[in-house]
């Protein structure tokens, strides 16, 4: 697998960096790939803009920063507006449709999918698992990481007592992602 650049964007408090951590750990520890996670790091706080940047693949990762994302996971309008212009032609854009409205057109080759992740999270019982729903959605659509690796990473990265809720959230997103990819076929 060629190295893929992924950016996750949203606002502080949504677990953007945690989502990046779970994804990076799943890839590097459980799927035996290489992964590097960097994050926007500043005097950020809850509600401010926030992003996590990952490179995942089988090749040696030299330059660790994301220059042009192949895949975007978007959880706020600000992140949508800021990051979608960076997306590689032919890349994948995934966004929470209740938190961001599409404002630009992409070429035919770009795969764009949306999910009401935060709404689904509220249905499951906790709004904070919206990031995990996005990860499930991403896993199904991208096919880059095995769902098994993701679940292992989720179980070891979320607070004790909340593992099952998070796995349930993952499954919700994953199933939704499978439906989207089947529709396309």
């Amino acid at each position: 697998m060629k190295n893929i650049q992924i950016k996750i964007g949203g606002f502080g408090g949504q677990g953007i960096v945690l989502a990046g951590y779970i994804l990076g750990k799943a890839a590097s520890i459980h799927d035996k790939k290489n992964a590097t996670l960097t994050q926007s790091y500043g005097p950020e706080s809850r509600g401010g803009s926030c992003s996590a940047q990952l490179i995942i693949g089988n090749d040696e990762i030299d330059y660790p920063k994301v220059s042009q994302p192949d895949i975007l996971l978007i959880m706020s309008q600000e992140a949508y507006d800021k990051f979608t212009p960076e997306l590689t032609k032919g890349g994948i854009l995934l966004y929470d449709e209740d938190l961001a409205k599409p404002t630009n057109n992409f070429g035919k080759t770009t795969r764009v999918h949306s999910i009401p992740a935060t709404r689904y999270a509220e249905e499951i019982g906790k709004k904070v698992v919206a990031n995990i729903i996005m990860l499930g959605f991403f896993t199904a659509i991208s096919g880059l990481i095995s769902p098994d690796a993701m679940k292992k990473s989720i179980r070891s990265s979320t607070p004790s007592g909340f593992e099952e809720l998070n796995v349930k959230a993952f499954d919700r997103g994953y199933e939704s992602g499978l439906t989207k990819t089947n529709q396309k076929k």
Partner: peptide, 10 residues
């Protein structure tokens, strides 16, 4: 430096 300190890898 800050980048090495904060970046995550295996």
């Amino acid at each position: 430096d800050e980048i090495v300190g904060h970046m995550m890898e295996k």
